[in-house]
Simulated scan of single mutants.
Amino acid sequence: MNWNDLQVFLEIYESKTLRAAAKKLNVDQATIARRLNDLEEKLNTKLFIRSRNGVTPTSHALDLIPHLNTIQQETIDIERKLNQLQQEVIGTVKISTTDSLAIEFITPLIHRLQVKYPKLCIELTTTVETLDLNKAEVDISIRTFRAKEQDLIVKKLAEWEVGLYASKEYINKFGQPNDRLHHRHIVMYQQGILPYQNDRLVGEVVDHSNIITQVNSSLILMHMINSGSAIGELCSYFAKKNNLQRIWPNKKREQNYEVWLAMHKDSYKTKIVRIVINEIVKIFEKL
């Protein structure tokens, strides 16, 4: 016996005629009659007395009705719960990015996601290291260079020009640099942080004796420039956000500042990962 047989039985009982039950279940009357006969044979008992006016349940049928109604309601409740689980966004999505991108874009996103999806958790890692998407160390990676590993889906989110910037306080204190980097207040990334790093700023050779700080954090580099402690390369987006002054507007770094999103193709099949990715893309589309 299966649930479909029991549904036929309940529908015949509620509809009072085979024709009405067939119409309700969207099948022909002969099919309903055959399925009722099959059910009665399986149970080895008569369930309905047929007549010209319809069907009348036997005492055996009446004994079954309360139990079947309970089963039917429980089945409906289970189906509703399963539908809710499919619609709900529950789970953890792991995101890796730089500290400056995390503060500017991801932490505001987390707040909006929490409002829309209260059962979604974001595990946010800020690091200069590239976590392995193929080994599921992270679900979504947002970096300033394009990932080249196999089996990844990548998308460029943004691209900005990179120039040399200083704060107004720095210019007031140390003056505007001439056409050479003679200032002894330069901040740069440590070697190996950027894949395209060299000993130049916006194409100009840097005297290492003029470097006061080498950092491995984009947030610290930006803070050093913004606080008036040093001059350094910065993308136009963050420079404009901090009201920094561009030095030598006609000079720029050869490589633009790019923001790339990457995920493993299997991760993209997961509903909650797709939801987070779509929200991230929306943020950058509005810029």
Results as ranks from 00 to 15, higher is better:
residue 2 N to K: 14
residue 2 N to T: 14
residue 5 D to C: 06
residue 10 L to T: 01
residue 19 R to L: 12
residue 20 A to L: 10
residue 21 A to V: 02
residue 23 K to I: 14
residue 30 A to L: 11
residue 39 L to H: 02
residue 46 K to S: 11
residue 54 G to I: 01
residue 56 T to F: 09
residue 56 T to M: 09
residue 59 S to L: 13
residue 62 L to T: 08
residue 63 D to Y: 12
residue 68 L to C: 08
residue 69 N to D: 10
residue 72 Q to G: 02
residue 73 Q to H: 06
residue 89 V to L: 13
residue 93 V to T: 01
residue 94 K to I: 02
residue 98 T to C: 01
residue 100 S to Q: 06
residue 105 F to N: 08
residue 107 T to R: 14
residue 114 Q to E: 12
residue 114 Q to S: 15
residue 116 K to E: 14
residue 117 Y to R: 04
residue 117 Y to I: 05
residue 122 I to D: 05
residue 124 L to G: 09
residue 125 T to K: 15
residue 127 T to M: 07
residue 132 D to V: 07
residue 132 D to E: 09
residue 141 S to A: 15
residue 146 R to P: 05
residue 149 E to C: 08
residue 149 E to G: 11
residue 149 E to R: 12
residue 151 D to C: 07
residue 153 I to Y: 15
residue 157 L to N: 03
residue 158 A to C: 03
residue 159 E to A: 11
residue 160 W to E: 15
residue 163 G to Y: 02
residue 164 L to V: 06
residue 165 Y to H: 04
residue 167 S to G: 00
residue 181 L to Q: 02
residue 182 H to V: 12
residue 185 H to T: 15
residue 188 M to A: 11
residue 189 Y to E: 03
residue 191 Q to S: 13
residue 196 Y to L: 09
residue 196 Y to H: 13
residue 196 Y to Q: 11
residue 201 L to I: 15
residue 203 G to A: 10
residue 203 G to V: 08
residue 204 E to R: 12
residue 206 V to A: 08
residue 206 V to G: 06
residue 212 I to S: 09
residue 212 I to Y: 04
residue 215 V to P: 01
residue 216 N to R: 08
residue 219 L to I: 05
residue 220 I to K: 10
residue 227 S to G: 00
residue 228 G to Q: 02
residue 234 L to S: 05
residue 235 C to F: 04
residue 238 F to M: 06
residue 239 A to D: 00
residue 239 A to W: 00
residue 248 W to S: 10
residue 249 P to A: 06
residue 250 N to T: 13
residue 251 K to Y: 01
residue 257 Y to H: 13
residue 261 L to H: 05
residue 267 S to M: 11
residue 271 K to W: 06
residue 273 V to A: 00
residue 274 R to M: 02
residue 277 I to V: 15
residue 279 E to N: 09
